[in-house]
């Protein structure tokens, strides 16, 4: 599909370009800030790290706004996010399937890193509108966005082309999600951090993460090849998004 260059690169302002350029910095800096805060045992860790997570979301949202997208180009994100949130209801009778992470990964893979990030972040924001906002919302948004972003980055380097590699990636990403949120719980809510505390927290989350990872792989592997093809068809039919 090398010949389609129909959709020109969108004009962004100075601020938008700057924000886009510091996106990777935000992704790396947030976990580091959290660990420094934990290392120095500074007070109010839960509040400060959640506030930092909100700050880390800013470059993504601002640069996305700065693109001033056409209506068609925001629709894939809306559809995929709605499907991910609705998936929690639609697939409730089949508990073995966990669609949320899988859909975010597929979006990042097929539509690019920024779409992946926004889809992941909005999925968590909107699903918390229905299932309850909490101090965890910024961290969930950040982490799910990170997963979509990583899928986009690896996809653009051609690393996620095979069924098994996508499956392994999905499996690892669910554990990454659990790991980051568990770490935030320890840093934020445990006063005397030590190996025993950390072990207990990670161990308590292990089986939930494992079930989530298996559910994600079960959903992700069968669609790993067919959905990108379907999206490619839709993209070229309606000329959605930057040319692939």
């Amino acid at each position: 599909m090398g010949k389609q260059t129909t959709v020109e690169k969108r004009e962004m302002g100075k601020l938008g370009r700057f924000m886009r350029s510091i996106e990777p910095v935000a992704l790396v800096a947030l976990p580091i800030v959290m660990l420094i805060w934990a290392w120095l045992r500074l007070p109010n860790a839960a509040l400060v790290t959640s506030a930092c997570a909100i700050v880390a979301l800013v470059p993504f949202f601002v640069s996305f706004e700065a693109e001033r997208r056409k209506a068609r180009d925001i629709m894939p994100i809306i559809v995929m996010t709605a499907l991910a949130v609705a998936g929690r209801l639609i697939f409730a009778p089949v508990p073995a399937i966990k669609p949320v992470t899988a859909l975010v990964i597929i979006t990042g893979l097929c539509f690019g890193r920024d779409e992946g990030f926004i889809t992941g972040a909005l999925t968590m924001l909107v699903s918390n509108i229905f299932f309850g906002q909490g101090p965890w919302t910024p961290w969930q948004m950040f982490t799910m966005g990170l997963i979509g972003y990583l899928a986009g980055v690896l996809g653009s380097h051609g690393l996620l082309k095979r069924r098994w590699s996508i499956g392994v990636f999905g499996f690892l990403m669910v554990f990454l999600y659990g790991f980051i949120l568990d770490t935030w719980t320890i840093v934020g809510f445990v006063a005397d951090m030590n190996a025993a505390n950390a072990f207990a927290t990670y161990a308590a989350g292990f089986f939930t993460n494992l079930a989530g990872a298996i559910g994600t792989v079960v959903f992700l592997v069968p669609i790993a090849i067919s959905w990108p093809r379907m999206f490619g068809r839709i993209k070229s039919k309606y000329q959605i998004g930057p040319a692939a």
Binding site: R68, R69, T81, A82, V85, I90
Partner: peptide, 16 residues
Amino acid sequence: TISLMVSMISRWIPRM
């Protein structure tokens, strides 16, 4: 854009 998307998503969920 983001807030428009959030409200559109909320409408799309029952539709889905």
